[in-house]
Design a binder for these strands. Structure first.
Lengths: 219, 219
DNA sequence: AAAAATATTTAGATTTGTCTAAAAATATTT
DNA sequence: AAATATTTTTAGACAAATCTAAATATTTTT
């Protein structure tokens, strides 16, 4: 089954969007892929005819099992390449996303498996997201949203909720990385902000929006 | 200057074809790129309007200096990725060409330069071809065609004339690799074949066509 | 140098992925 | 439940890269 770059991008977007809801709407997809709803409808029909989607007009779409398998291959490639860029080529973890968006479409199965081996079969990428193995199996992180922690809980950041440049910029400014350790000092009901203590920088305040984007494991 | 994959493939093909002649014909290009002459004409017009080619209808085409610069970037990427695949991922040197054909179109300049550094700034790829540096400069091999050697000359294979699957198959069968050492035993005027002695296998006969595809340095 | 063969370009069609504008379906509000 | 708003689909157009068939240039042969 050979897919174009466009087709792969739709499959990947549907995969990520259906994590939240079970089903994905045309408009959601259009916004995510930076295209128009009419274009999405065209592509949904095409991918459905290739048996990669379960799609009823007006009722939204989700991946078929075949589509899910392909999505996991793309996600695997994306995350392995990100790992390569950070671990081997010394890229910063906040500058690898765009390059990996290109590399994830290289088709050779052998390349991916050799790359995986070369990297030591990592289970998580530099953002803390799990990497599917060659069968599409990935461990799910036992991770908690930072917002859910009680005061005085110590935790370590292990993943972030998106790779948007805006979020990455903010994290850089606050000096928060994967692996950063912190302790929740107190929570403010008014705006749902958090005061947290960072090992390196002392106490800082974090907005509700930022806290929701941070996933941690307690330590 | 952003180019599509198709455009890059035309630039690369013209670069390689004009090594031999100074100028490249529409039919040559069509054969090389596995397309029709009419399609080539269309693309020549397009790339000429982007100032990458020097092209007069019916008179053939060659790269402008801007086009040559882009070609060298593509060749650099191709050969660096081939080096990566062989040196780091343990691919055989005869199975990397196709994968590198995809990888060479990844656009990030930073990626290429970091990859170059990671590999230790190699000057030659696994086929023995020189790798342009980030300024497009490459050392030319002091290499001799095997056919030009006199009997009793010892030499080492350092590059092959093409990457066609047919040639690679033959080299595999004869157990000839980059780095293989040999001594020319005698030359036959009748069919211009050569008898050579390989360190590992003893004496074998090599056709004119094969000898012409092998470049060596004397040792 | 004319005729024949070959190479190249032009003209018009096709496919893919996108778009805008309008129509149809669904969801929300009153 | 009607009216309104939103979402989604359809219809038709467009740009990129290709194709076939026909026209035109160039080269080779006689």
């Amino acid at each position: 089954m050979h897919l174009t770059v466009s087709e792969e991008n739709y499959i990947k977007a549907i995969f990520h969007l259906q994590e939240a809801d079970g089903t994905v709407s045309t408009n959601q997809l259009a916004a995510n892929i930076h295209t128009k709803p009419a274009s999405v409808t065209d592509m949904l029909k095409k991918l459905t005819s290739k048996r990669l989607l379960l799609y009823k007009p007006y009722q939204g779409v989700r991946l078929s099992s075949e589509g899910r398998k392909l999505a996991l291959e793309i996600v695997r490639k994306h995350r392995l390449w990100e790992s390569f860029l950070v671990d081997k080529l010394q890229f910063g973890w906040d500058e690898v996303h765009e390059v990996a968006e290109e590399l994830e479409h290289i088709s050779s199965k052998k390349l991916v498996d050799k790359l995986d081996q070369f990297l030591g079969n990592p289970r998580f990428d530099p953002h803390g997201d799990p990497i599917p193995d060659s069968n599409g199996v990935m461990v799910s992180l036992r991770q908690v949203n930072l917002l859910d922690l009680k005061p005085l809980t110590r935790a370590e950041v292990c993943s972030v909720g998106s790779q948007s440049p805006e979020l990455l910029e903010l994290l850089k400014h606050k000096q928060i990385l994967i692996g950063t350790r912190l302790e929740v000092q107190c929570k403010f009901e008014f705006d749902h902000s958090l005061e947290i203590q960072l090992e390196a920088r002392g106490n800082i305040t974090i907005s509700q929006q930022l806290a929701q984007a941070l996933f941690v494991k307690t330590i």
